[in-house]
């Protein structure tokens, strides 16, 4: 229903948790532990996603190296078979500066077409899907995350987390910096752009910056850049507010095991999986969700699935 598309389900009062005879492990005739660990080794969605991510990034590289001219440019701005695509946060900074300098009118039609095309594309596929399905930094960070989680488990380091809203401080802050210094300040620190360009045009010294961020994520705070800093991800999460493609949660299949929250990059978006937290029989994961599918892979009851919001009411 379109009405519950934007409604705040968090504010409603929770529905009653299921009694033990209705729990999925009882229905399956398993002990809770057996049931919970039944899909631990399932990595189907992750493998598909990695394949897509690597394919797209290598397509950039080989389009240049082999002169294929399929996907030219880099993740900052590109051309897919002659059709322009723009990075929205880069464009946002550029628009902010140029609105004060009179440069705005100079921008080409290709720029506007590229910007709107990409906004519409990710609006449909879910803003932050870009992060897990396209971003080369995400791929590296996933490995760093594994090391980090291992170190936490072995009690070598302490887990540190911060407020999730800090991204928006950086989003607005870097925009202001762009305005004040008349420079695309963030682009010089943008690990996504640095990696993308290093792959295509050859490595640069700024890869050391990427390394520093990765080491920080390994030893200090899990997924620090993606969770708390990256204004590109923050922009996408705003774009993804109304995306029809989303991960759907069905309360009747859930066993309250919290395996999904453990693997999730943005666990605050899975607030309804805790026993007694859900307020509706069906929830859709919010706009910070990267649609990475890790929760879909791991959920023993298939309570989390990819779906198209509102499709059932349309069909």
């Amino acid at each position: 229903m379109l009405s519950d598309y934007f409604s705040n389900a968090k504010k409603k009062s929770p529905i009653a948790p299921k009694p033990v005879e209705q729990m999925p492990h009882t229905l399956a005739g398993l002990s809770f532990k057996e049931w919970r660990d039944s899909r631990k080794k399932n990595h189907k969605m992750r493998n598909i996603r990695w394949a897509v991510l690597l394919f797209m990034n290598l397509l950039f590289v080989f389009s240049f190296w082999l002169d294929l001219a399929i996907l030219e440019g880099s993740l900052s701005g590109s051309r897919l078979i002659g059709f322009y695509l723009m990075d929205p946060y880069n464009s946002l900074q550029l628009l902010a500066i140029s609105s004060t300098t009179g440069y705005l009118g100079m921008l080409t039609m290709n720029f506007w077409i590229g910007l709107f095309t990409i906004l519409i594309f990710w609006l449909i596929f879910g803003g932050r899907s870009y992060c897990s399905w396209m971003c080369p930094y995400h791929f590296l960070a996933e490995w760093a995350e594994k090391v980090h989680n291992y170190l936490v488990k072995k009690k070598k380091i302490k887990e540190r987390s911060y407020h999730i809203g800090l991204r928006f401080v950086f989003l607005v802050g870097f925009l202001l910096l762009a305005l004040l210094t008349k420079n695309l300040v963030f682009e010089n620190l943008n690990v996504v752009g640095i990696i993308s360009k290093a792959m295509i045009y050859g490595p640069s010294l700024l890869l050391l910056w990427v390394l520093a961020i990765i080491l920080f994520e390994v030893f200090v705070s899990r997924r620090f850049w993606c969770r708390y800093v990256c204004p590109i991800g923050a922009t996408w999460s705003l774009v993804g507010k109304a995306s029809p493609l989303a991960v759907k949660f069905e309360h009747d299949k859930c066993g309250y095991c919290l395996e999904c929250q453990k693997v999730c990059l943005v666990p605050h978006e899975l607030w309804f999986v805790k026993r007694g937290a859900a307020t509706q029989d069906v929830h859709y994961v919010g706009s910070d969700c990267t649609r990475c599918g890790l929760c879909v892979d791991v959920c023993p009851g298939n309570a989390l699935t990819y779906s198209v919001r509102g499709a059932s009411s349309l069909l």
Partner: peptide
């Protein structure tokens, strides 16, 4: 002055040049 903020550093000009005359500046 305008070039430094207007250039989004995508490298499309680098890729299209048939003699590879254009390079991207280092750190």
């Amino acid at each position: 002055e305008d070039f430094l903020y207007g250039c989004i550093k995508c490298g499309l000009c680098v890729q299209i040049c048939p003699v590879h005359a254009i390079e991207l500046a280092g750190a």
